[in-house]
Amino acid sequence: GKMTGIVKWFNADKGFGFITPDDGSKDVFVHFSAIQNDGYKSLDEGQKVSFTIESGAKGPAAGNVTSL
């Protein structure tokens, strides 16, 4: 299901970062391709987001990332 969290950091040049889930679980990798907006796909440190957990090739990653 949907989770919420805070963006820990995001490197716009490399197109990835990490989200710290509100439930205290392990930080989740986020790739820019998972960001659900029409414009420039980037996130800001400290931004609140909702997301799902998808299993990627390198382990769990955030999917369906939407800013709240």
Results as ranks from 00 to 15, higher is better:
residue 1 G to N: 10
residue 1 G to F: 07
residue 1 G to P: 08
residue 1 G to S: 09
residue 1 G to L: 07
residue 2 K to N: 14
residue 2 K to V: 15
residue 2 K to I: 15
residue 2 K to S: 14
residue 3 M to A: 09
residue 3 M to P: 05
residue 3 M to F: 12
residue 4 T to M: 10
residue 4 T to D: 04
residue 4 T to F: 10
residue 4 T to A: 06
residue 4 T to W: 07
residue 5 G to A: 02
residue 5 G to V: 00
residue 6 I to A: 07
residue 6 I to C: 09
residue 6 I to S: 09
residue 7 V to I: 09
residue 7 V to L: 03
residue 7 V to W: 02
residue 7 V to R: 00
residue 8 K to P: 01
residue 8 K to W: 03
residue 8 K to Q: 05
residue 8 K to L: 07
residue 8 K to H: 11
residue 8 K to S: 07
residue 9 W to E: 02
residue 9 W to D: 02
residue 9 W to G: 02
residue 10 F to N: 01
residue 10 F to W: 13
residue 10 F to E: 00
residue 10 F to G: 01
residue 10 F to H: 01
residue 10 F to S: 01
residue 10 F to M: 02
residue 11 N to L: 07
residue 11 N to W: 10
residue 11 N to I: 06
residue 11 N to C: 07
residue 12 A to F: 10
residue 12 A to V: 14
residue 12 A to I: 14
residue 12 A to Q: 13
residue 12 A to G: 11
residue 12 A to M: 12
residue 12 A to T: 15
residue 13 D to I: 14
residue 13 D to L: 13
residue 13 D to Y: 15
residue 13 D to E: 14
residue 13 D to S: 13
residue 13 D to F: 14
residue 14 K to F: 13
residue 14 K to Q: 11
residue 14 K to E: 06
residue 14 K to N: 05
residue 14 K to C: 06
residue 15 G to P: 00
residue 15 G to F: 03
residue 15 G to Y: 02
residue 16 F to D: 01
residue 16 F to Y: 15
residue 16 F to C: 04
residue 16 F to T: 03
residue 16 F to Q: 03
residue 16 F to L: 05
residue 16 F to M: 08
residue 16 F to W: 15
residue 17 G to A: 02
residue 17 G to P: 00
residue 17 G to Y: 02
residue 18 F to C: 03
residue 18 F to V: 05
residue 18 F to N: 02
residue 18 F to I: 05
residue 19 I to P: 00
residue 19 I to S: 00
residue 19 I to D: 00
residue 19 I to H: 00
residue 19 I to C: 01
residue 19 I to K: 00
residue 19 I to A: 01
residue 19 I to F: 02
residue 19 I to L: 08
residue 20 T to M: 13
residue 20 T to S: 12
residue 21 P to G: 03
residue 21 P to A: 04
residue 21 P to F: 04
residue 21 P to Y: 07
residue 22 D to F: 09
residue 22 D to Q: 07
residue 22 D to T: 10
residue 22 D to P: 03
residue 22 D to H: 08
residue 22 D to S: 10
residue 22 D to N: 11
residue 23 D to L: 07
residue 23 D to H: 07
residue 23 D to K: 06
residue 23 D to R: 04
residue 23 D to Y: 08
residue 24 G to Q: 08
residue 24 G to P: 03
residue 24 G to I: 04
residue 24 G to R: 08
residue 24 G to C: 06
residue 24 G to V: 03
residue 24 G to D: 06
residue 25 S to N: 10
residue 25 S to R: 09
residue 25 S to M: 09
residue 25 S to E: 08
residue 25 S to Q: 10
residue 25 S to T: 14
residue 26 K to M: 11
residue 26 K to E: 11
residue 26 K to W: 08
residue 26 K to R: 12
residue 26 K to L: 11
residue 26 K to V: 13
residue 26 K to D: 12
residue 26 K to C: 06
residue 27 D to C: 04
residue 27 D to W: 04
residue 27 D to P: 08
residue 27 D to N: 08
residue 27 D to G: 04
residue 28 V to D: 00
residue 28 V to K: 03
residue 28 V to T: 03
residue 28 V to Q: 02
residue 28 V to M: 05
residue 29 F to V: 03
residue 29 F to T: 02
residue 29 F to L: 04
residue 29 F to R: 03
residue 29 F to C: 02
residue 29 F to Y: 10
residue 30 V to R: 00
residue 30 V to L: 09
residue 30 V to Y: 04
residue 30 V to E: 00
residue 30 V to P: 00
residue 30 V to H: 00
residue 31 H to W: 04
residue 31 H to T: 04
residue 31 H to A: 04
residue 32 F to M: 13
residue 32 F to A: 13
residue 33 S to V: 04
residue 33 S to I: 05
residue 34 A to D: 09
residue 34 A to C: 04
residue 34 A to I: 04
residue 34 A to M: 07
residue 34 A to E: 09
residue 34 A to G: 07
residue 34 A to W: 03
residue 35 I to N: 03
residue 35 I to G: 02
residue 35 I to Y: 05
residue 35 I to S: 03
residue 35 I to T: 03
residue 35 I to F: 07
residue 35 I to Q: 03
residue 36 Q to E: 12
residue 36 Q to G: 10
residue 37 N to K: 14
residue 37 N to I: 14
residue 37 N to E: 13
residue 37 N to G: 15
residue 37 N to Q: 15
residue 38 D to Q: 11
residue 38 D to Y: 09
residue 39 G to E: 10
residue 39 G to T: 10
residue 39 G to N: 11
residue 39 G to W: 06
residue 40 Y to W: 15
residue 40 Y to Q: 13
residue 40 Y to M: 12
residue 40 Y to V: 11
residue 41 K to S: 09
residue 41 K to P: 11
residue 41 K to V: 07
residue 42 S to L: 12
residue 42 S to V: 15
residue 42 S to T: 15
residue 42 S to W: 13
residue 42 S to K: 15
residue 42 S to F: 14
residue 43 L to Q: 01
residue 43 L to A: 02
residue 43 L to D: 01
residue 43 L to I: 07
residue 43 L to C: 03
residue 43 L to N: 01
residue 44 D to S: 15
residue 44 D to H: 15
residue 44 D to C: 10
residue 45 E to I: 14
residue 45 E to F: 13
residue 45 E to R: 15
residue 45 E to L: 13
residue 46 G to A: 05
residue 46 G to W: 05
residue 46 G to C: 05
residue 46 G to D: 04
residue 47 Q to T: 13
residue 47 Q to H: 11
residue 48 K to G: 07
residue 48 K to R: 14
residue 48 K to M: 11
residue 48 K to P: 10
residue 48 K to A: 11
residue 49 V to R: 00
residue 49 V to C: 04
residue 49 V to F: 01
residue 49 V to E: 00
residue 49 V to I: 05
residue 50 S to M: 12
residue 50 S to F: 08
residue 50 S to G: 07
residue 50 S to K: 08
residue 50 S to H: 09
residue 51 F to S: 00
residue 51 F to Q: 00
residue 51 F to K: 00
residue 52 T to N: 10
residue 52 T to P: 01
residue 53 I to P: 05
residue 53 I to N: 04
residue 53 I to W: 07
residue 53 I to M: 11
residue 53 I to L: 14
residue 53 I to A: 05
residue 53 I to V: 12
residue 53 I to C: 05
residue 54 E to K: 05
residue 54 E to V: 09
residue 54 E to M: 09
residue 54 E to Q: 10
residue 54 E to R: 05
residue 54 E to H: 07
residue 54 E to S: 09
residue 55 S to Q: 14
residue 55 S to M: 15
residue 55 S to C: 07
residue 55 S to W: 11
residue 56 G to V: 07
residue 56 G to D: 14
residue 56 G to F: 09
residue 56 G to H: 13
residue 57 A to Q: 13
residue 57 A to W: 13
residue 57 A to S: 13
residue 57 A to H: 15
residue 58 K to A: 13
residue 58 K to R: 15
residue 58 K to Q: 13
residue 58 K to W: 15
residue 58 K to C: 06
residue 58 K to H: 15
residue 58 K to E: 09
residue 58 K to V: 09
residue 59 G to V: 04
residue 59 G to T: 05
residue 59 G to L: 06
residue 59 G to N: 07
residue 60 P to F: 11
residue 60 P to K: 12
residue 60 P to Y: 09
residue 60 P to A: 10
residue 61 A to I: 15
residue 61 A to P: 02
residue 61 A to M: 15
residue 61 A to E: 15
residue 61 A to G: 06
residue 61 A to L: 13
residue 61 A to D: 04
residue 61 A to T: 14
residue 62 A to E: 01
residue 62 A to V: 03
residue 62 A to C: 04
residue 62 A to M: 01
residue 62 A to N: 01
residue 62 A to L: 02
residue 63 G to K: 10
residue 63 G to Q: 14
residue 63 G to N: 12
residue 63 G to E: 11
residue 64 N to R: 03
residue 64 N to E: 13
residue 64 N to I: 08
residue 64 N to D: 11
residue 65 V to W: 00
residue 65 V to T: 02
residue 65 V to L: 05
residue 66 T to N: 11
residue 67 S to K: 14
residue 67 S to T: 13
residue 67 S to R: 14
residue 67 S to C: 08
residue 67 S to W: 11
residue 67 S to I: 15
residue 67 S to H: 13
residue 68 L to S: 09
residue 68 L to C: 06
residue 68 L to I: 15
residue 68 L to M: 12
residue 68 L to A: 10
